[in-house]
Write a protein that binds this DNA or RNA. Structure first.
Length: 578
RNA sequence: CGGGACGUAGCUCAGCCUGGUAGAGCGCUUGGUUUGGGGCCAAGAAGUCGCAGGUUCAAAUCCUGUCGUCCCGACCA
């Protein structure tokens, strides 16, 4: 490809509406342009990268036994009602009506469609296992699209769905995809690692996310330095709080004391009260699927909403309003407690960190009063104990016993073992060897292809621009003749090398623009081609060209050796990322 | 949906407080010059100042509304 024959609109200045570096570079390097919030046009260089990532995904999924299909993005609303996700996912569903007023949704994911297909087509264990995948544009009405391609209303996703006869088979399918994902991200030059994950509205029992460490990520990952444990903070557990909960009872009975104006943990911990946060019981009122519930946490702990939903099975949870608190317990937030005045119909969930807690202080359910000498299991009716707390840095790993750390990360892939949630609802069954009818056992697997593209940039850049791994770079080599007049020695030499490289299967772009050297150098570094070969009059007079890997040092190479040298370099880079 | 910031030329921004004929740099066009890291000189094209209403002799500037963008939160495979 010749530079003047394609379209690479680079920007010298940083666009004002791009906050993070990968978003800025997407725009500056001319990979994409924004149509409006959350919607982007892929320009030639961006599209080439996208296609190369897709190709890696296809090769690895095919190798893992995946079968490629293409499903409709436009889907009947009734199918979503049948799976009950028309309600549970209503906030992200784009809904449209046709001219006959029939209702449709733009697919945010395809469990319903693929399950419907398999319900119709699969009837025998002899047809199993199967693993279907597609690479397709998905639509999600994100409340807040942000960071360019990271969270968009429309994005390219690889989604795969496995169907097995047995649970063991489903685990094997899951494992295959897990391994394929590991290879896919490695080949993209991404340092991505799997972490245990919450299953969210997709449902299912077993799940891992593939995370790319980055400060700009939207996820917190809890991990152990030893490498034995890593989990999304929504799922992560530890051996518990660093400071133990007091569990020795003094035998004292609960006693009310006045605390005018005290409505925070911090205020009660300060003078004159001096009740340390870990000796307080925080009483949280939440509305779960319309029901008021109480959650008791240690004062220094934070409620983990994902855990709350997982443990209670609720689809929608929100904090109660102050009015709802007064209606349920008779006091406002800050003075709430579960010691007395809790209606029998209100479920009380308590966090495991409070097991056996003694000598605790909590709200008295009357504004301006607290209650001390609480022995939790003696004084409070608990409906259910569970782990609701958010893990904190420094707590000990449940496996290794080493202190846990937390870092930000970008989620680029997610694998789920689904079980029979969708096959049950959509009646996708088969006959087993013994003639019994069973539901298909499913798994589903996603990779955000466009998000992966941006994650590669987020991880691979420097002050001059993008630093592409050779496997996903828009072109592997950029030839930069400084003089481009027809017949100029620099141009002739560049064209000869171009022909040799193209013949050898190297992806090469020749910068034939009549621009000053500085412009061409800056642009090649901004767009981030892995290798640049420069052709200047001075070095050419010495029979040399300039070989310069992106981010590396310049090295003179004899013209006669240039083709072989470039081919060897590219092949070595390709091999390194296999 | 709650909080905040911002909408002026293709891009980055100034001008607004204190109302009085629309500005700079980059980019673009033309000519000259230069030619190894986003050059220099000259000339030029380019903006209903997001939109609507109001105040005023007069609004980019003040007021109200509205739309859009970005950030934080909430939410989210």
């Amino acid at each position: 490809m010749y530079w003047t024959q394609t379209f690479i609109p680079t920007l010298k200045e940083t666009p004002a509406d791009a906050e993070i570096v990968s978003h800025q570079l997407l725009l500056r390097a001319g990979l994409v342009r924004k149509l409006t919030g959350g919607l982007y046009t892929f320009l030639p260089m961006g599209l080439r990268v996208l296609r190369k990532i897709e190709r890696i995904v296809r090769e690895e999924l095919d190798r893992a036994g995946g079968i490629e299909v293409l499903m409709p993005a436009l889907q009947p609303a009734d199918l979503w009602r049948q799976s009950e996700r028309y309600e549970t996912m209503r906030d992200v569903l784009f809904k449209v009506k046709d001219c006959a007023q029939r209702e449709w949704v733009l697919g945010p994911t395809h469990e319903e469609v693929i399950t419907q297909l398999c319900a119709a087509e699969i009837s025998s264990y002899r047809q199993l296992p199967k693993n279907f995948y597609q690479i397709q544009t998905k639509f999600r009405d994100e409340i807040r699209p942000r960071f360019g391609l990271m969270r968009a209303k429309e994005f390219v996703m690889k989604d795969a769905y496995s169907f097995d006869a047995t649970d063991e088979g489903a685990m094997a399918s899951y494992r295959k995809m897990y391994d394929a994902y590991t290879r896919i991200f490695a080949r993209c030059g991404l340092r991505a690692f799997p972490v245990e994950a919450d299953t969210g509205v997709i449902g299912g029992s077993h799940s891992h996310e593939f995370m790319v460490p980055a400060e700009t990520g939207e996820n917190d990952v809890v991990y152990c330095e030893s490498g034995v444990y890593a989990a999304n903070i929504e799922k992560a557990t530890s051996r518990g709080p660093t400071v133990a909960t007091p569990t020795v009872s003094t035998g004292a009975v609960p006693e009310r004391f006045p605390t005018p104006g005290v409505v925070t943990i911090e205020a009660l911990a300060a003078a004159p009260y001096g009740v340390e946060a870990h000796r307080q019981i925080k009483t949280l009122v939440q509305v779960a699927d319309g029901q008021v519930i109480l959650i008791l946490m240690r004062g220094d702990d934070q409620l983990n909403e994902a855990k709350l939903m997982a443990r209670t099975g609720a689809m929608q949870v929100r904090p109660a309003t102050p009015e709802e608190c007064v209606a349920a317990l008779g006091a406002r937030p800050g003075s709430l407690g579960a010691v007395s005045g809790v209606p029998a119909t209100v479920k009380v969930y308590a966090d495991e960190a409070l097991r056996g807690a003694c000598g605790m202080t909590t709200g008295a359910n009357e504004d301006g009063w607290h209650c001390r000498n609480i022995d939790l299991e003696r004084d409070i009716r608990v409906t259910q104990w569970a782990d609701f707390r958010t893990v904190k840095v420094g707590e000990l790993c449940g496996t290794s016993g080493l202190p846990l750390k937390i870092r930000r990360a970008i989620e680029v892939g997610h694998v789920f073992k689904l079980g029979t949630k969708y096959s049950d609802k959509l009646n996708a069954t088969f006959l087993s060897e013994d003639g019994q009818r069973h539901s298909l056992v499913m798994g589903c697997y996603g990779i955000g292809v466009t998000r992966t593209l941006q994650a590669v940039i987020e991880q691979g850049h420097d002050k001059d621009g993008i630093v592409w791994p050779v496997t996903v770079a828009p072109f592997e080599v950029c030839l930069t003749p400084l003089g481009v007049a027809p017949g100029a020695p620099t141009r002739v030499a560049a064209e000869e090398l171009y022909a040799a490289l193209v013949a050898a299967g190297i992806e090469v772009i020749l910068d034939d623009r009549d621009e000053r050297p500085g412009v061409k150098f800056k642009d090649s570094e901004l767009v981030g081609f892995p290798l640049r070969v420069g052709f200047g009059e001075k070095s050419l007079a010495k029979g040399e060209v300039e070989f310069r890997p992106r981010g590396g040092v310049l090295e003179p190479v004899k013209v006669a050796d240039a083709a072989a040298r470039v081919i060897a370099w590219v092949q070595a880079e390709r091999a390194r990322l296999q």
